[in-house]
Simulated assay, not measured.
Amino acid sequence: MLRSYLRLLLFTCGLLLGVQVPGLINDYSQRVQAHLLESREGLKGFEQTAQRFFNGDLQALVRHYRASDDPVFHSDADSIDSLLGRNRLLEGEWQILQGPWLTRTWHVLVAADAQLRDETLKGYSYQVLLVPEAIAWGLGCALLPALLLESFLLLLGWVLLGGRRKPVQPSWR
């Protein structure tokens, strides 16, 4: 009886953990999109200046600022370069998040930008999404650990008992 309850508990924990995966991916995607829009807005003024004087080449604008003797321009060049680097990072993240679900999931769980992932986890509130992919993740994360643990325990019992089964008790009938 206790074994059945433990099995149910493991299954339920796996299910609840699994339904969080699509919500986490969704929150990470929204965070990347928000930062990307902010990054684009931050570059807009510099892009206009680059468009007017350097045919839209932001790197030429940065080189021009660095070539100046004015330390204010050098500081601005560093700022623009930093904004451009951040924008490239966010554009890359956004492109990956537009791919297939397996690629998105792997990226968010394993290869996501650490700062954005930490930001997402700190702001994440647990949720139960009732969408097909959340249900599939939930069932997958519930069945796999339950199956693996049950198989391991049966194998362990088989090894410890030497492959013998308990004798069948005669029925009271």
Rank of each mutant, 00 (worst) to 15 (best):
G157K: 07
G140K: 04
H35I: 06
L16Q: 02
G157P: 03
N26S: 10
L36F: 13
L153Y: 14
E38S: 13
S82M: 10
R52E: 15
S125D: 09
A136C: 00
L97R: 08
L129C: 02
W94V: 01
G140A: 07
E91Q: 13
L9Y: 12
G18E: 03
C141W: 04
G123S: 02
L83K: 14
G157N: 12
L17A: 15
G157I: 08
L43R: 10
Y65L: 13
L129V: 00
H64L: 05
G42C: 02
L9N: 06
P145R: 05
E150F: 10
R63C: 02
S82N: 11
N26Y: 13
H35Y: 11
Q59I: 13
V128M: 11
F73G: 00
V159E: 06
A67F: 13
L61N: 08
N26A: 03
L16V: 01
G140F: 05
V110E: 05
G123N: 06
V131H: 14
L121H: 03
L90V: 09
L90G: 08
L83C: 04
L17W: 10
Q48K: 14
D69S: 15
V131N: 11
L155V: 00
A112F: 12
N26K: 11
L102E: 04
V108P: 00
L37M: 11
N87Y: 15
L144Q: 09
E91P: 05
L58N: 02
P100Q: 08
R88H: 09
L6D: 07
D81I: 09
A112L: 12
V19R: 00
Q30D: 07
A142W: 01
R7A: 14
Q115F: 14
R173D: 08
S151E: 11
K166T: 03
G123A: 09
L156Q: 01
Q33Y: 10
P100D: 08
L149Q: 10
L37W: 13
G138H: 00
L129T: 03
Q127V: 15
I25G: 03
L148D: 07
L6C: 13
S68L: 08
F46Y: 15
H107M: 06
L2S: 07
G163R: 06
R52Q: 15
S4M: 09
Q95Y: 08
W101G: 00
Q115M: 07
W101Q: 07
R117S: 13
D57M: 10
F11Q: 00
L84T: 01
G140V: 05
P170V: 04
L156S: 01
D76R: 09
V19I: 15
S68E: 14
Q51H: 14
Q48N: 11
I25Y: 01
S4V: 11
E41I: 06
L160W: 05
V168N: 10
T12I: 09
Y65T: 02
P132V: 08
L37D: 14
L109A: 01
R52A: 15
G14S: 07
Q169A: 15
E93T: 04
F53T: 14
P100C: 03
L61S: 08
T120A: 09
Q95W: 07
L24I: 03
V128C: 11
C13W: 12
I80H: 02
